[in-house]
Design a protein around this nucleic acid. Structure first.
Length: 581
DNA sequence: GCCGTTTTCGGCCCGACTGTTTTCAGTCG
């Protein structure tokens, strides 16, 4: 799908235009880039079927952008984009990752200091060049440096949910090859870590050469590092490294286990094997025979299940293999029965075009039904978040009438789906809510969110959120720590104190499934599980395609040892509602 | 550059915060 590439070109045009101080056009390009980026259908297909006219039917696309899309389809580039880029030859991808660096700043830095790349920026910062610029000072320089440091720490890692579609696509393609008998994606992808460094694909094949040839010649390959019979390694255009390995049938389980990790988990398994007088490697579990020249006796390794069983353990799900007590739990028959990937019945955070969502309530409902859900809560933003056109007292009541109308329609048609009334209500500076209690009391589900003042002291931020939790109508704290992976650290807040207070007030904490939020993170999920604090897994959908993100929230819950009993939207609507304040 | 229950031109939703200034530009959500 060329949508992603096209979407980036259009968004880049918007940024370049913004640098030039052009009015309104930037937003038009930015918006259309967003829309195309989250489109269901391949733009290529739309163009093939209906030409320019069909392109213009895409929301946000007029004649001018339609022509640019056409040009992109025909030539793979957009001249207008090339021209703009020539005028301002900076590495936007790199520089824009720094929090606080917008188009205008990037422009100034280029014009005054010839900064094009992250490396240029770091050099200038360390040489104290930034603070000398007009309009900049020591603080600006310090903030940029902090941004660079943060970026380095997250160091080239990819957000799982953002690269997963591409990995799955490659997996599906390889799976279809007649020479491939079995295939698995191993490594941190299989453990479902929130970010991954690379992807390891394992296969069984009697005739691997054609598979390898196919693999290194895929259209999204940018570089080939290795191209052999048992191992090939490539870099994709999006920067992700992918390895493909061919494994022998009899040791596939052992190899899958080895390549899935985590490293520490593997070490623990090997130690267990040694205790029993055996030896574990990626080739299998062996009886280590004394004496030279004797062949080691193969004990297990065809499947992972067999391997764990021989070691006297229950099978351990990949998401648990992080050395957080899973070895002991497995031996004691005390592993959790993790919530399943089909385990959700509802979604408690959904935005619509009443605020900053892309689709109507009805469209979101239709998509939710398709995603297999039984209910959703409409939780549009509230008035403080003005840019989203947040709902005030009047508009939210209007929305309720619309929801009633939709639910009534389901009643008539005999559809069991339920739309619930909710809000993603801003928590104000002092911990009070952006909507009055009499409105909140009439919502089915009240979510509370921090969207401002990320830099309060740890104490003030914690008190602020605790005050919101003490509101008798606040059911859930949405994305409790506010982090954005690869972009922004969590605000200073005492999460353990929030967990304690959640228990005391009966407040639910959210696992936000949006890929770069994944908030709460796994270790806090486990603390909630241990403390008996209930959680919800919500997509935070802003368009009909975002329900697919729920799986990443489920991953996060599983990595935190959560079972069905811990996740309130794994329950039927009635039971879920009864649990709330 | 897009859009239209303001319909083919004239709008395009804003407010808080920061760091720099001494009245404001840039960024964020």
């Amino acid at each position: 799908m060329a949508n992603q590439e096209l979407s980036k070109v259009l968004e880049d045009i918007g940024i370049y235009l913004e640098m030039q101080g052009v009015q309104f056009k930037p937003r038009a390009y930015e918006k259309v880039g967003e829309i195309i980026g989250s489109l269901d259908r391949d733009v290529k297909d739309i163009y093939k079927e209906g030409g320019l006219k069909a392109l213009e039917d895409i929301p946000g696309v007029g004649i001018s952008i339609a022509e640019k899309i056409e040009e992109f389809m025909k030539t793979g580039r957009v001249k207008y984009h090339d021209q703009l880029k020539k005028q301002m030859p900076v590495n936007l991808d790199e520089l824009r990752q720094i929090e606080g660096l917008g188009p205008k700043t990037i422009k100034t830095l280029y014009q005054k200091l010839k900064i094009r790349t992250l490396a240029d920026l770091e050099r200038a910062t360390k040489a104290g060049k930034i603070r000398e610029l007009e309009g900049f000072g020591e603080k600006s320089e310090e903030n940029i440096l902090k941004g660079i440091e943060f970026l380095k720490k997250s160091g080239g890692r990819f957000v799982l949910g953002f690269v997963m579609p591409e990995i799955r696509k490659i997996e599906e393609r390889l799976k279809k090859l007649p020479q491939v008998q079995k295939i698995n994606v191993a490594g941190s992808v299989r453990r479902r870590k929130e970010t991954i460094g690379d992807a390891d694909i394992l296969i069984i094949s009697d005739n691997p050469k054609p598979v390898m040839d196919f693999f290194v010649n895929m259209p999204e390959v940018a570089r080939i590092f290795a191209h052999g019979e048992t191992k090939s390694a490539i870099k994709l255009k999006n920067g992700l490294d992918v390895d493909l390995r061919v494994l022998p049938k009899e040791s596939y389980g052992a190899a899958l286990n080895y390549f899935t990790g985590s490293k520490d988990h593997n070490v623990a398994l090997r130690r267990l094997a040694i205790e029993k007088g055996w030896k574990l490697s990626e080739y299998g579990l062996f009886q280590s025979e004394k004496g030279r020249g004797k062949r080691e006796k193969f004990i297990a390794g065809r499947t992972e299940e067999e391997l764990y069983k021989k070691l006297g353990m229950d099978y351990i799900e990949p998401e648990l293999r992080e050395m957080r007590g899973e070895i002991e739990a497995s031996r004691a028959d005390k592993l959790p029965k993790l919530i399943g990937y089909d385990g959700l019945k509802g979604d408690l955070q959904v935005q619509t075009d009443w605020t900053d969502g892309a689709n109507s309530i009805e469209e979101m409902v239709e998509a939710a039904i398709k995603a297999g859900l039984e209910y959703i809560v409409i939780t549009d933003h509230t008035k403080r978040l003005t840019i989203t056109n947040g709902l005030d007292e009047k508009r939210i009541q209007k929305q309720w009438a619309e929801i009633d109308r939709i639910n009534k329609g389901f009643g008539v048609k005999g559809i069991g789906f339920r739309v619930l009334k909710g809000t993603e209500c801003d928590i104000l500076k002092d911990g009070t809510m952006d909507l009055p209690d009499d409105i909140l009391s009439k919502c089915d589900v009240v979510g509370a969110s921090v969207h401002s003042l990320f830099n309060l002291s740890r104490k003030d931020q914690t008190e602020r959120i605790k005050r919101a939790m003490s509101n008798p109508h606040v059911d859930i704290v949405f994305h409790p720590t506010g982090r954005i992976l690869n972009k922004r650290a969590a605000y200073e807040v005492d999460v353990e104190e929030l967990i304690k207070y959640a228990k005391k007030t009966g407040t639910v904490l959210e696992i936000n499934a949006f890929p770069d939020r994944a908030d709460l993170k796994d270790e806090y999920v486990k603390k909630c599980v241990d403390a008996g604090v209930k959680m919800s897994i919500d997509s935070d959908s802003h368009s009909i395609n975002h329900f697919q993100h729920l799986q990443y929230g489920i991953s996060q819950a599983r990595r935190g040892w959560a079972e069905k009993k811990d996740i309130i939207n794994a329950w039927p609507a009635e039971k879920m509602l009864k649990m709330l304040k």
